[in-house]
Design a protein around this nucleic acid. Structure first.
Lengths: 200, 200
DNA sequence: CTATTTTCAGTCCGATCGGACTGATAATAG
DNA sequence: CTATTATCAGTCCGATCGGACTGAAAATAG
């Protein structure tokens, strides 16, 4: 089926949820609040979604697919591990510039599961990201471009560093995101590369 | 006054709150749940604290003072910016090893304020940490040991990287924290240092 | 036109929360 | 001994939540 209406409502509700999550945080993102944000009756949400969990999953998947479809094509043009990692960081921040609320929203969703891991779909997508970075690093190490470091640690550091750009930017809107990304690229490329003197 | 009983109760309640926050997250950290964790009546909490906010502030300040009293003395012995930053990272992780739940707990408290910054005491202590790192970096740059980078970005990256050690460790208990810390130190010292060839 | 889908405002339920309060009791201090 | 302080289990309140439900109206489809 997938009527136009159904799809439009889904998008509308997801968009309203993203706004509320990003602006007021997870605790305020109740069904009533989201319905109010969308200008619709609360019943409509439960009519189109089986419940709150399913709706938040739709939010997560929506942002995930949006981000990956933005980033994936831009990665194709690069070849070396260094360039690809730099491109990865640059693209993540590029996406961030145009989709601030989406990223803040899924950040709220990710944090809302205080200890005790959240739903599967979150864990798997986080693993995919770590995997992608780790593979690029392994290739760089194999080629002798990168020194020997722990790829898990490095991948986590990169992910968190990109995250820090978002929180800094949300906190200080005057932050120059492109410059922030360039700083991170310089930091990590220098931190990963093998030195000329051949040691380590 | 500060009777023995009052102080002991405060500590007991704070400890129980830390356990619940670290193990079950902010959402589960209700007064009833914390009282149950401590094996006391819920009324005792409202008897010794004016309310939930004051109690969580006590939790935050408790961990903050514990951490700074652990770390500060160990910083005195170092002299150069590189060594001090390395020591800073090492000490943060050293404290982490013995106070996992405390750090997870204040992490929950920090995250609980979805957008819209939390209480003052949190913001100021975060600023102090960033300030300390930024000052060390400025000194390193002045001495020509470090290259020219954005100290705000670098300080945020370091803080987040240390945080990543905690989340990784909480997620995978088999993580070798000392090795993790050494990896971070290698990463950031290489990322910050001025290269021998004199460029940039 | 008729049948179906969608929207709406609103109610009701059970649960949980922070917090104020009770009254009895236990512990401690002067 | 007498006051004071501390503890307890429990109640009550107002508020909010997710969610199920209602009945009627509106929109859409066949």
């Amino acid at each position: 089926m997938k009527s136009f209406i159904e799809e439009a409502r889904h998008k509308q509700i997801v968009a309203a949820a993203i706004s509320v999550l990003a602006r007021e945080g997870y605790a305020s993102a109740s069904l009533s609040r989201i319905a109010k944000e969308a200008g619709i009756s609360k019943s409509i949400i439960t009519y189109h979604f089986s419940g709150k969990d399913e709706m938040f999953e739709a939010v997560y998947r929506s942002v995930e697919s949006s981000a990956s479809s933005y980033i994936a094509p831009l990665m194709e043009t690069e070849e070396g591990p260094s360039g690809m990692i730099a491109t990865y960081i640059r693209n993540q921040i590029g996406y961030m510039k145009e989709h601030r609320d989406e990223l803040l929203a899924i950040g709220q969703l990710a944090m809302s599961h205080g200890r005790q891991e959240g739903p599967d779909y979150m864990a798997t997508s986080a693993q995919e990201e770590a995997r992608l970075l780790a593979d690029l690093m392994a290739e760089g190490q194999r080629r002798g471009i990168f020194r020997d470091f722990d790829r898990r640690v490095m991948a986590a550091a990169i992910s968190k560093a990109i995250e820090s750009a978002l929180t800094e930017w949300a906190y200080r809107p005057e932050t120059d995101l492109d410059a922030y990304g360039d700083e991170l690229i310089a930091l990590f490329l220098r931190g990963m590369e093998r030195r000329e003197d051949g040691s380590s």
